[in-house]
Structure formats: C-alpha cells, structure tokens
Design a protein around this nucleic acid. Structure first.
Lengths: 140, 140
DNA sequence: GCCCAAATCATCCTTTCGGGTGAGGGATGT
DNA sequence: ACATCCCTCACCCGAAAGGATGATTTGGGC
C-alpha cells in the first residue's frame, strides 16, 4: 500500500523532471501539447491499470459475488431442490443433525437425501461431494 | 471491451478539447506545466484503476491461478507443513485411509494431524475445517 | 382418478470419524 | 545436556456418517 503510493509519487516526480529537462530542448518545438498529454495519459492509465488491483483488492473474499449456479448441470444430474439445499449445508460444514434441525426434518431424511446425492455426484464421502459440486458450480 | 476503449478515447479527446479551450484563458497564466501534468496523471490513473479490472478480468475461473497461500495466517495458527498437507487432501475429498496411503504413514498419524488441525482451526468436523481453511486462504 | 417424482421417515448394519491419552524418535536451538 | 516442536504410531471408545431397503405421504401432470 505504502509502496504503491511511493511508486506513484516517484513516477510522477520522475516524469515531471524528465519533461522539465526535455522541455527546452527538442520536444516543445517538434511536438504539440496534445501529444504530450496523450503520452502522459497513456503512461498513467497504464500505471493505474497495474496499480489498481493492488490498491483495491480485498484481503479475503467471503462470499463470491460472481457465483452463478450451473442449473443445466443440476438438471442433468437430476438433483432436486431439497437435495441441493442439503448439499449447500454440508459444504458449510454442518453435521447431519444440524442440517436436520435447520430444515425441520429428521436426521434419517437428511441421510436419505445425502445418499441420493452421493449416487448422483458419484461421491463416496461428503467431502468428495463438496469438491465435485464446487467444480461443477452447483454451490459457491 | 470495445466500450472501454471508446470511453478511454472519449475521455482523452474531451480532455484535450477542454485543455485547448482553457489553455488560452486562465490556466496557462495561473498554473504551471507541472500542475497540468499532475492533474492529467491523476485523472488517467483513476481511469486506469477503474478500467483495469474490466479490461483484464477473465470470465470463468476454473482453477484459481490467483490463489496465494496466506502464510501469515498459517503461521499465526501454528499449522505445520504436514498438517497443511493433510488439510489439503481432506479438501480434495480423500478419506483418512487414502491420505495415509498417499503420505506413506499410518491412519493413526493422519488422525493425529487432523485432531491438531481441528483444534487450531476451531472446527468440529472435517467439512468445517475445509470451509474455514478456504475462508482463510490456507487452501485453494 | 391415476401415475410419478419428490419428500419424508424408519430400521439394521458397517465403516469412518473424532476425542482423549500416551509415548518414542528426530531435528533445532539454548 | 535439555527443552521444545514436529512427526510418528497405538489403543480405546463413542459419535457420526454411509449403505441398503422399504414404506408413507403429497403435489402435479395426464
């Protein structure tokens, strides 16, 4: 962060010095102000493009705003709404019992949904189901 | 993409026109070339920062090439190299036995590593550990 | 009305996980 | 030499997860 500001400052200072030096030699006669401005604009736009992500990126992305559910894949695998809910909850680290409580159903029901999910996703464990579901963009 | 280029072009043209218009009125007398350059630099650096992500971002990120391990967090939690390996493998959906085979150690060892991990990550289940580790960028 | 998919719940049984504890060997640093 | 950390392994126990199967209910579509 501080480094970026320093680099920006140094670039600006250097450019001004360069222009000051060059101003009374060749350029003022040969090129117009528009070219000047263009060069500076391009230079600093480039710097902005380079420095932008470094200045603005957040440390941790909690929920991905770019996530779009892959409904085609969801349908292709024949995953029902309820099964998808359960899938989402195991990915968030909940146990079967917690999911049952959250959805107001019995643990057995959750287990049934999970069994069906494991078949449809060809997974042997919940962790594997999560990994595959993420790859297929069925969950964030 | 094209829109961005157009906006950039329009901004540049507009600025030049503005400067051209303003040049022979107030500014040339009141402000020096350095201020000019500074204003232009700031303006276009801002434009670069704004346009940069829009020009460079990819549509879909299959495997995140931007993943950088959060080593600070890793150290803060006191997670050892071996523990981190195990963490990575459970996130890929492997069972304890599979991990043991992969790392050429006994299942008991894997379980010990996992127990320590659960303590350090404050997790009760492997799925929860995965979820937390992802949030902390300890694993991709 | 009938059919079907989805959702619900249950029972039985096996495997996997997770918690607790102890313990030995190797590397590192004081 | 001693302390400390990491890695390793073992044993026990209980809880959670997973597999197989069958049954009931419910809401839409034909």
């Amino acid at each position: 962060m501080k480094r970026i500001v320093l680099i920006y400052g140094a670039a600006l200072a250097g450019l001004i010095a360069l222009l000051k030096y060059v101003e009374y030699r060749f350029l003022v006669r040969d090129f117009s102000l528009e070219v000047y401005i263009g060069v500076i604009a391009v230079l600093f736009m480039g710097l902005g493009i380079w420095a932008g992500p470094r200045l603005t990126r957040r440390k941790v992305v909690l929920i991905d705003p770019n996530f779009v559910l892959n409904e085609a894949e969801l349908q292709r695998l024949g995953i029902s709404k309820r099964e998808h809910e359960v899938l989402d909850l195991i990915a968030k680290g909940h146990s079967n019992q917690e999911i049952a409580d959250k959805l107001f159903v019995s643990v057995n029901t959750v287990k049934t949904h999970l069994s069906n999910l494991f078949l449809k996703l060809d997974a042997a464990r919940r962790t594997q189901a999560i990994q595959k579901a993420k790859k297929l963009r069925l969950i964030p």
